[in-house]
């Protein structure tokens, strides 16, 4: 465990907790894309298939349970909670899941390190995680109102993967193992997707004005 990875995990943890807290306290999911949250629940499910078979460390298992629990409870809140669901903007959040899920699945079947179920599922989760934020970014551009918490949530999500890239660079130089090129590519693509959001986030933060994404 290195500082980049710990910082990345904490940033990631913080992002899902910020979102869960926002939805739980103000009982609203305005500006949040249910599609993205469902994709993240799928990412964690396919990523952590080995949670009960391969024990790596207590930290690893606890964090996996937190990510699985928080992502599914966010989906539950937006879908089932009688108050929260009213603030869900389903007419705007129309990104089709299968536009992302199917290409990632096909890609994972053809481009992976080992053609086993677990390995293909793990690779699928990497590809899907890279693009899962798209429905959320589309929703932000459509609704054009980004409340602070949602902006912070997206920013933290982007920051976590950027920290992971630093972690991979660090491990590449300090440990005899190599980071799989698939992990690298998916991680870099994911971070680049946030790049334009980061740009506008910093602009709004610097000029101390409300965050506006160009249409």
């Amino acid at each position: 465990m290195n500082i980049f990875r710990l910082a990345g995990d904490m940033t990631h943890l913080f992002s899902v907790l910020v979102l869960l807290l926002k939805i739980h306290t103000i009982k609203s999911c305005a500006g949040i894309s249910l599609k993205t949250q469902e994709l993240y629940a799928l990412v964690f499910t396919t990523r952590y298939l080995d949670i009960f078979t391969d024990f790596i460390s207590l930290y690893n298992t606890v964090m996996k349970l937190i990510f699985l629990g928080s992502s599914f409870s966010i989906v539950w809140y937006i879908r089932r909670h009688k108050i929260v669901r009213r603030s869900y903007d389903k007419d705007q959040d129309t990104f089709r899941h299968y536009f992302l899920v199917i290409p990632c699945l096909v890609l994972a079947v053809f481009i992976n390190h080992k053609f086993t179920f677990k390995e293909v599922m793990w690779t699928f989760s990497l590809y899907l995680e890279a693009v899962a934020i798209l429905p959320q970014l589309v929703l932000l551009q459509r609704t054009r109102n980004i409340d602070n918490l949602t902006g912070q949530y997206v920013f933290l999500l982007g920051a976590y993967r950027a920290l992971y890239i630093l972690n991979w660079i660090y491990r590449h130089f300090t440990e005899p193992h190599y980071v799989h090129w698939i992990t690298w590519i998916a991680g870099v693509v994911q971070t680049l997707l946030y790049a334009d959001f980061f740009y506008y986030y910093f602009q709004s933060w610097k000029n101390n004005e409300k965050l506006q994404l160009p249409a």
Binding site: I56, Y164, E175
Partner: peptide, 10 residues
């Protein structure tokens, strides 16, 4: 590490 590189990551 016995596990592959990024398999011990989240």
């Amino acid at each position: 590490a016995t596990t592959e590189s990024s398999k011990d990551e989240l």
